[in-house]
Design a protein around this nucleic acid. Structure first.
Lengths: 367, 367
DNA sequence: CTGAAAGCGCTTACAG
DNA sequence: CTGAAAGCGCTTACAG
């Protein structure tokens, strides 16, 4: 049987703006098959003769057919919608996650619906239920802090909605996740400073209620100890991930009788605070003080010197999350296969705020 | 007739995770009415007896009924989906727009679908058509630069999808818009500097291909002229909205025989560049040089001194856009009523990078 | 003020 | 390899 080439469509000379969109029946009629066959072709189901398939594809192209998502969703099991749930993240973080997620969604014919919910809302579980019930997304992506909120996780589990956690505080046995290795990244930054000759290295911690705080601190401590360097209490400052606490850290650390030669602030906002305060006190960065951060925020490149930091694979984590959701490798059985927990590689971005320690020791504050 | 109070629902002691969600028929049965009446109640249609309505509402609550969006969308005219289309905006801008849009959507029972598309894609029109055809959103929100892209606007017009432009380069006769008054905001910043005693005020322009560049420049010029101050060519630098061009501007401006005492950079990134360069050259901001920006980016508060700037009503613009879309005041007739073009108020945020000019004139670079 | 019927555009579950 | 029938959960257009 030869491939039947359908005649060109009888196009109106100017098509009205309100032209009715082609439906599956229109395609079926034009291709001379049943709607079931059209359905098979558009869902890439096997068991359709090559010629038939070609015919149908041609008809779909001729009529500029686009399946109605509502109809597919109502009749079938899939909605082609992925939900992204977040609360009060940094703009850079959410923009990057979204970029990765929409890109992957588009490739797979899915769409991304974003919902922000207050982590503290008393009716959070109800809100999630409502959202899932009306939207029926094929999957949900959760970001911190919602990915660690028991209410949210419970609601999603009850609804049976496949969910992937991005950067959760800790891996859960029952939920797939994508994250980076904060401990290792912090080790690498610390190792960098040590390799540059620094020995008195200060660390500015994040707030206790964020998982990353402990992980990054752990990485710092491990790297120091691996090199036989002491972690002195006076060189660890309890910050809160905000600019002001970096400023406070600098004031305290730089007033020590023996100053550190490098400060590793565990996020960029604090690192910027450290740098601003140090410069105001007349210190030249990096000559008299090295500063390193974590996050590679946009502001890291909007200062002089530009900040040495860690780039999180935010974009890639979001892509991976959507992939896992769409692939649907996980049928829900427990324990979760190891492949359902992915750790993505980060980058250490070395810029000008770090440099080799001068061989001749600098004059201490109080000689 | 007294209000019939329905008996408590026969709840299973533990409800299975896969419990079938209640449908309109379940509600109808329980309330003892037809599904049409349930439909009327959930759509707030008039002409339902108060008792009947109460009954139905009770049944909906008892069964935790949530209407299926797919079914409503397939059967009716509305999809309860609003689309947000963007391309490569600043993270802060898109995060803020989204926050405003999702909040308003939630209140009205809508959901926000985000799509990013490449402004340069050759098949952009086709992409938009496909998106609209499969998703059938009740409305679209466009942000720069897509809100000025003829391909996109054409596709949306053809599809008959109601659209609101956020911050378009110029108002169009056929598309509703929401924006702020860039000219006026730039005037206000300039007036502020003049009122502080500055006379030699430099201006750093944005790139020619962005609408805001000309508008902000216009505001600067108008304010200067209104005060009888000259706008000298040597004090206007052609930047590109990026940090580096702010640095370049500072190097040129501060090398002038008679330096400006204030620099108004028409966005924050450039203002940060000006400030960084000035400080590196040993100038104290604001004592020896005032710097003002535009945008109130997150970084504006992550420097010392904090930057005087303009806060755009991004969040509010997005809220207003969704409002206009949902209200559906505009039936498509032309010319567009004036109410379909909204201008929202901005804030001038005065911080520490601007201050009164010292009464005693400063020593010029070359006396 | 209320309801019975048809239909939106697909997929599912069968049958052949 | 292909198709006829039923049905997803709503709204529309009528009828009373």
């Amino acid at each position: 049987m030869t491939l039947a080439i359908p005649p060109l469509p009888p196009m109106a000379t100017k098509k009205p703006a309100t032209a009715q969109a082609a439906t599956i029946s229109d395609v079926a009629k034009r291709a001379g098959v049943s709607i079931k066959t059209v359905s098979r072709v558009m869902n890439n189901e096997p068991g359709v003769h090559a010629d038939t398939r070609a015919n149908v594809l041609q008809a779909m192209a001729d009529l500029r057919y686009r399946p109605s998502q509502s109809a597919r969703s109502l009749a079938g099991a899939r909605s082609f919608l992925i939900g992204l749930l977040y609360f009060d993240p940094s703009a850079a973080f959410i923009a990057s996650v979204q970029q990765g997620a929409t890109q992957k969604c588009r490739q797979a014919g899915y769409h991304l619906v974003v919902e922000s919910m207050d982590d503290d809302a008393h009716d959070l579980r109800e809100q999630v239920h409502r959202m899932v019930a009306t939207l029926r997304p094929d999957g949900m992506i959760l970001t911190p802090p919602l990915c660690d909120n028991p209410q949210v996780l419970k609601a999603l589990r009850e609804a049976g909605t496949p969910t992937v956690l991005v950067s959760p505080a800790r891996q859960r046995k029952d939920m797939p996740s994508v994250r980076m290795d904060d401990v290792h990244a912090a080790q690498e930054i610390t190792n960098l400073l040590i390799s540059l000759g620094h020995r008195r290295i200060a660390f500015v911690r994040g707030p206790d209620d964020q998982a990353a705080s402990a992980l990054r601190h752990e990485g710092f401590v491990e790297a120091m100890e691996a090199h036989g360097l002491p972690v002195e209490d006076e060189l660890v400052f309890a910050g809160n991930f905000r600019f002001d606490s970096g400023v406070a850290a600098a004031h305290k650390l730089l007033a020590l009788s023996t100053r550190p030669t490098a400060v590793f602030a565990s996020n960029d906002d604090m690192a910027l605070g450290v740098m601003a305060a140090a410069q105001r006190l007349g210190l030249v960065v990096p000559d008299e003080l090295n500063v390193a951060g974590f996050d590679d925020s946009p502001a890291a490149r909007l200062i002089w010197p530009e900040l040495t930091t860690v780039r999180q694979p935010t974009f890639e984590m979001a892509r991976a999350a959507v992939e896992m959701l769409i692939a649907g490798d996980w049928s829900g059985e427990l324990p979760l296969p190891a492949s359902m927990h992915r750790v993505l590689p980060h980058d250490v971005v070395v810029r000008d705020s770090t440099s080799a320690l001068a061989t001749r020791p600098r004059k201490p504050a109080h000689p």
